[in-house]
Design a protein around this nucleic acid. Sequence first.
DNA 1: TAGATTGTTAATCGATTAACAATC
DNA 2: TAGATTGTTAATCGATTAACAATC
Lengths: 200, 200
Amino acid sequence: MSAISGNLIHRLTLYHCILNYTVNEQEFVSSNEIAAFLKIDDSQVRKDIAACGIQGLPKHGYKVFDLKKSIEKKLSFNEQTDIFVIGAGHLATALTQYADFKAYGINILALFDNDESKIGQMINGKRVFDINRLENLIERMKIDTVILALPPQNAQEMTNRLVKSGIKFIWNFTPCIIKVPDNVIVYYENIVSGFLQLKL
Amino acid sequence: MSAISGNLIHRLTLYHCILNYTVNEQEFVSSNEIAAFLKIDDSQVRKDIAACGIQGLPKHGYKVFDLKKSIEKKLSFNEQTDIFVIGAGHLATALTQYADFKAYGINILALFDNDESKIGQMINGKRVFDINRLENLIERMKIDTVILALPPQNAQEMTNRLVKSGIKFIWNFTPCIIKVPDNVIVYYENIVSGFLQLKL
DNA sequence: TAGATTGTTAATCGATTAACAATC
DNA sequence: TAGATTGTTAATCGATTAACAATC
């Protein structure tokens, strides 16, 4: 299975978002309608949809429900990933409360922090654990994916602990470059870059 | 001036991040060193750097300080954008406290919310205003850019108000597609797409 | 000098756009 | 049928990678 490019992923999630609205409103949607929402080329929309392996109906468009399902399949929304959040600050909290992560296959199980006042609290139904229990729980629950959302000065040290515990995927929300072995994958969630794409 | 592609912007911000560490450690940095951090091609790093209009020194590499400055220039980090944050929840708070937004040209002036308990509070030195004062303050302070970080159900209605008030750039953190006129630019900060790029 | 690294060209690759026949 | 929309090919465009001469 060939990898899906970042741009395609981004567009498909936006199409999916549109379909969430329209699924209760109309049976069919055309490539033109979707393109108009996002102000992009309609022929690109058709290409993207074709990549999801679904067919439309000339003169009508695509069945909204089926199209939605096919995007979910293409983007593996049904394959749940159990995930720990490292840090329990505002960003971590915001992510934990984020609308319906679970619908996208993101299953947050718990948070970790070293702040006594946060340990033991519940955030949107998820417990904040003492960071000391990190290694133990990663092993016991067989976690391989984390969200890194802690102060930058601790990012590399924490990364080292995570890697040593067997973490393979790090979704990094800190504004830091972290060093990891070749078998560990990091995605840099670079907030500033979104702003620049808006303005430049 | 031709537009800078999203991927290039993303890479340049990561290079810049690396340079922040190395600027106090070493005078020169090679394309190979930068490439190794991010596990990308060194010849791509040189191409990207060339796009910033700076020259290196064969056998030594690039002067860290100069390279850092040239990326800042290319990405307009010095041109401050005054910005309002619509919403004052955890995400809005996290963004307002985000490490050094100002160093990237993002100057958050104030937040807005309709929650009585939040109005009047200070978040990282920025006041939370009553959402009723939005139009008035946009006009008075000549704001054209906002961060949209509020519950999805209010996104479109609030967008309409913003557009009517003259907002031209919307950095949208809600998981919603919003309709705007052609002269308004929206960037969809799609959190889920980051996760998918990590895993797919 | 010898060797490392840039700068740049050419080659490759992939993504986007245009066009239009096929289809319902 | 006439017309709208897909599906797909071809054309274009841009981004990435490879290669290597130029340079310090």
